[in-house]
Simulated scan of single mutants.
Amino acid sequence: MIDFSLSTEQLDLRAGLTALLADHSTPERVRAAEPLGFDPALWAVLGEFGFPQLASSREGTPAGLAELVIAAQAAGAALASAPLVETLVATRLLDRLGHTGSADLVTFSPRPAVAGVARTVPWAAVADQVIAWDESRIVASRPGHDLDCPKQTLAGLAIGHVDLTGATVLASGPEAAALFDEALADWRILTAASLVGIGVAGLRLGVEYAKTRHQFGQPIGSFQALAHQLADAATLVDGAELLVLEAAWAGDTGSSRRHGLAAMAFTFAGRAARQATDRSLHAHGGYGYTMEYDIQLYFRRAKALGLLGGGDGAATDAVVTLALADTDEGRR
């Protein structure tokens, strides 16, 4: 039986980052950062906190996925307008490649490039460096005049398309493919953790509203039709959190199941977060669809994060492919 209890150091990390984000990633700050979705002041504060260095070996032993999951979940709950997950993933990949990197803000493209263009890359619009997979090569590109940025997206995140012409080749061949797969698993796990944070915080908004909104002389949360929906969503989010922790454990221990668990965690957490924020939005009634209420921020972010990796279909395909590979291996 795996014990997912947090250590004293992990509890301190969660408490410290949660307190910092409560001060510097308020709903008002999140709104102000849209439509681009990037808050440079928040990124500067996170740098002072030492967040980008968590995954780097330059400062000593880098944090494991278990610690990074805690950070990603806190960032998701606060809707942080900064590239926390992608920077951590890119930093871990660069470390594995033996490159410490000199860029202040580095991001990771979870989707392979198409015709030499990395498309819909989170935070590419503000990144100093983009790490991507292009025709059996891991490449690094510094976005410049070739960057194509959508004017507005579902939930900001500074998305952009990056022309990889002239990009620096960091690795190629089968070894590079294995390293990129490791990075993609990291991205799925940490994005899943962020989605869990979104689901928890979004659900809390719905529950609090259901406690204070009265109809027919009683709180609407007392009506079974609503209470059961919120309870079902809470169960899904709890399950997603456990799956994310198991995937992180598998990644830290080098388990052969880590890639499958990462894909499952990403898919399940995405669905859980969308259901939790959807149920909370509906608990608000018509108010949930207005920009003045915070629940729509969580609803849109949950939708957007699930799409960045190609949607549920891409991760589900990965789960099926890995399951079939395991079955074939067992038959040999």
Rank of each mutant, 00 (worst) to 15 (best):
A63F: 15
F4A: 10
D328R: 04
T61L: 06
P35F: 12
K303V: 05
I189R: 14
A318V: 08
T267L: 13
E292I: 03
D95I: 11
R258G: 13
Q229E: 11
D148T: 03
A78H: 04
G101Q: 10
E246V: 06
L93G: 06
D232V: 05
L297V: 01
A155G: 01
V207F: 06
L322R: 13
F49S: 02
A72G: 02
I159G: 06
E59W: 15
L203D: 00
Q224C: 13
A304L: 10
E86R: 01
S5I: 00
R279D: 08
L94V: 01
R137C: 02
A19C: 02
A127L: 05
L261C: 05
G76V: 02
E241F: 07
A33M: 12
S172R: 05
L147I: 13
R29A: 15
L97H: 10
L230K: 09
A115H: 15
E9M: 03
L94E: 04
G270Q: 10
I295H: 00
V45E: 14
K211W: 07
T290W: 09
G251T: 03
A71E: 06
A177G: 08
A276M: 11
H214T: 02
A125G: 13
W249D: 09
I220D: 00
W43G: 05
F51M: 05
R274A: 02
R188V: 05
G98Y: 04
R119T: 13
G288D: 00
Q218P: 01
L36T: 14
A66C: 04
A55L: 11
L245T: 06
F51L: 12
T191W: 14
R29S: 14
D146A: 12
Q275C: 07
G144P: 11
D23M: 09
T321G: 01
G260L: 10
T91Q: 10
T8K: 14
D317Q: 06
Q218T: 10
T100C: 11
L13F: 08
R31W: 00
A74Y: 02
V320M: 07
G221F: 08
T61N: 14
W133T: 01
D328Q: 11
A323S: 12
V45S: 12
D328G: 05
A155P: 00
G217F: 09
L157F: 13
L226C: 10
A201K: 05
S136T: 08
G288I: 01
R58H: 14
P40R: 07
A192F: 13
S57D: 08
R331P: 00
D278I: 00
V117G: 07
L226W: 01
R29K: 09
T212C: 02
P83G: 11
D163R: 15
K303I: 05
D12Y: 03
W187M: 03
V320F: 15
L42K: 07
L184S: 10
L297A: 06
L46A: 11
R331I: 06
R213D: 04
R271F: 08
R213W: 07
A90D: 07
A273C: 11
L226R: 04
E34F: 03
T321M: 09
V162K: 01
